[in-house]
Design a binder for these strands. Structure first.
Length: 592
RNA sequence: GGCGCAGUAGCUCAGUUGGUUAGAGCGCCGCCCUGUCACGGCGGAGGUCGAGGGUUCGAGCCCCUUCUGCGUCGCCA
């Protein structure tokens, strides 16, 4: 019997309950204990006037403190009239204790476990076992379980096999930094922990498994963020004989099913689909937050003839964008506030942030003198700016302008509280470019991963204008977060080799790093494609949290440390000797 | 690696222009209390103001350095 189960109908019976002391209310002659387990709370009464309560039991009850673990025998009875508690599932009954065993005592906890009061995250992580007892983490981990179960059920019902892939694999170049594991048997050689099971799941397809899924742990040695951990979990999926639309439909069905069965929320279908180009044009991001409008408007044509040199120059040059961003109600901002907003924009890479404010008293703004009334009128018409609104202008090279305006769009939405934390706005973004130019080196690199196939009919462009090649690559986006990416993969060795060549890898390098995979492609590799979704982010958004640390039982902090275990840590010299390693940096003294 | 914010009691925080003995709520400890459920009442303990250095007659407060955490940029095929 658990602490959340008893109801009025159980009155008259007797039960054995075990759990933690959530709260005690000691009235001197009468003691109440709220007993807690994962299931809920049950009020226990120690009533010395009752003939069923031995005196020594009451004496023991006086010793009880928060987080003591106890076992009791109790008679279940209805609470006295007027003492029922409506907001508690078990609030109609109580347990009149007849026997008590203290299974374990507890030190005074560093924070109150009975409740979700704010506690410093360091303290929560250091004493994670106490934090895990609190309602928030119990709820979040329960939701996580339900989501994972819904995923497994969904794919099981559709003929997918869950197949485990190894965590000790081969390091392959590019992408994120690998976590490396030194080999004892082969000193000087290293395994890598998988950044994702990408090649393994493709080989499972080559292996004829048809439909694969896995709740897979992935490792990337990059700096953590609120929505990123060095180790994280993906729902990983791969299928043979599919096209883009098949995978998207399968994954869309999954998230709809997960939201319905695990959260009881129905998602509007079909999920909106945006091409990459449209997403950038309308929202300035390839992971647009569709919970609000505030779309970007291109105004180069309108302002081309203005006296503002910046506009005229940008409009004349190819590859530039001039974007107007409507700030509803922004006309009331002071000059100082607009300056601060410009500073924010500069932080995003803008050189400045010209603006117009349509106040009740007329037009104001930094460029009011250099833009003619006709152009202003046209801008107002085109952007649907109302009196009281402001227009912010971003003019830069196309990609930069889009990025800046996209970030400002989020900034404005944040200020106007347009991002409803309870809303779920999914969208697909697809038709990504296959390649992009590395901003620093200028070299051509892949935008997803090098196994993504180009769209049909794109082969000619591949040689003549690779940056314009469209990939069969799709992202699922929720509330401005990228939930995951997928693609149709190259299944012909010759073409995969061509992609590698295009990326600057020579045959020797291909052989060294991907030889096993290239060989597999030569043995009847079927057409295949798939997707991976970030489970932690999904659960985070489903729980209304803003950090994936709150949906992971034992997360790491921003320096990738586990504050409870104090990992990473040094190891004995003998362990290093076994591995043929020596350390050539000074050992860091323990900081904790 | 850059930028921003934060660090004062076990927890959450306040602390004025640099000025007496650094406070509050919760928690904890003791006593009282038979219907509470955030029980209540009375009393009490508890502080390297993250650390180091400096300015000053005097520093929680000002300056420098540093550590830690969070957010973010870089990074994240």
């Amino acid at each position: 019997m658990s602490c959340g189960e008893l109801r009025a109908g159980d009155a008259g019976g007797s039960v054995c309950l075990r759990g933690w002391v959530n709260r005690r209310r000691d009235h001197g002659g009468l003691i109440f204990i709220d007993l807690r387990d994962r299931d809920g709370l049950t009020q226990l009464v120690f009533d010395p006037s009752s003939p069923d309560l031995p005196a020594d039991v009451f004496a023991t009850a006086e010793r009880l403190r928060a987080e003591f673990v106890i076992s009791v025998n109790a008679n279940v009875r209805l609470r006295l009239p007027g003492t029922q508690k409506a907001d508690l599932a078990t609030g109609g009954i109580e347990g009149a204790v007849t026997a008590l065993t203290i299974l374990n005592e507890s030190l005074t906890p560093p924070f109150v476990v009975a409740g979700d009061d704010d506690v410093d995250e360091n303290v929560r992580l250091r004493y994670r076992y106490l934090d895990l007892r609190r309602p928030r983490m119990q709820r979040n981990l329960t939701v996580r379980h339900k989501i994972v179960k819904a995923m497994r059920d969904y794919f099981d019902a559709r003929g997918f096999l869950e197949i485990e892939t190894p965590n000790l694999i081969k390091s392959t170049p590019e992408g994120a930094r690998d976590y490396l594991v030194p080999s004892r048997v082969h000193q000087g050689a290293f395994y890598a922990l998988p950044q994702s099971p990408q090649l393994l799941k493709q080989i499972l397809m080559i292996g004829g498994l048809g439909r694969y899924m896995q709740i897979a742990r992935c490792f990337r040695d990059e700096d953590p963020r609120a929505d990123r951990q060095p180790e994280f979990t993906q729902l990983d999926v791969e299928m043979t004989f599919v096209e883009e639309a098949d995978v998207m439909a399968m994954m869309e069905g999954c998230v709809i099913d997960v939201w319905r069965t695990a959260l009881g929320v129905s998602i509007a279908t079909p999920i909106e689909r945006l091409t990459y180009e449209d997403a950038i044009r309308r929202f300035g991001s390839d992971k647009p937050d569709l919970r609000f409008g505030l779309e970007l408007t291109d105004v180069a044509q309108i302002v081309a003839g203005s006296d503002f040199p910046l506009f005229a120059t940008l409009a004349a040059g190819a590859g530039n964008r001039i974007i107007a961003l409507r700030y509803p109600g922004g006309a009331v901002l002071s000059r100082r506030e607009f300056d601060a907003l410009a500073e924010t924009a500069k932080g995003f890479g803008a050189k400045g942030l010209p603006y117009l404010a349509f106040t009740a008293d007329g037009l104001k703004g930094s460029i009011v003198k250099v833009v003619s009334p006709e152009i202003v009128a046209e801008l107002q018409r085109y952007t649907a700016a109302q009196t009281g609104d402001a227009l912010l202008f971003v003019g830069e090279a196309h990609a930069l302008a889009s990025d800046i305006a996209g970030r400002l769009r989020i900034e404005i939405a944040e200020r106007l509280k347009l991002r409803d934390p309870k809303a779920f706005a999914f969208c697909w973004v697809y038709h990504f470019p296959l390649f992009e130019r590395d901003a620093e080196t200028g070299a051509i690199t892949f935008s997803h991963h090098p196994f993504t196939a180009p769209g049909p009919g794109q082969e000619d462009l591949f040689d003549s204008d690779p940056l314009r090649v469209r990939a069969q690559h799709y992202d699922l986006v929720l509330n401005g977060y990228e939930l995951g990416s997928g693609s149709i993969r190259n299944h012909k060795e010759a073409f995969q080799r061509k992609v590698f060549h295009r990326l600057g890898l020579d045959d020797a390098t291909i052989e060294d790093r991907f030889g096993f995979f290239m060989e597999a492609l030569r043995f009847g590799a079927p057409p295949h494609g798939g997707m991976a979704l970030g489970l932690d982010r999904i659960v985070m958004l489903a729980c209304g949290e803003t950090s994936i640390r709150d949906v992971i039982a034992f997360p790491k902090n921003q320096l990738a440390r586990d504050l409870m275990m104090d990992a990473p840590s040094s190891v004995p010299a003998a362990a290093l000797r076994d591995l043929g390693l020596s350390i050539n940096v000074k050992p860091q003294p323990a900081q904790l």
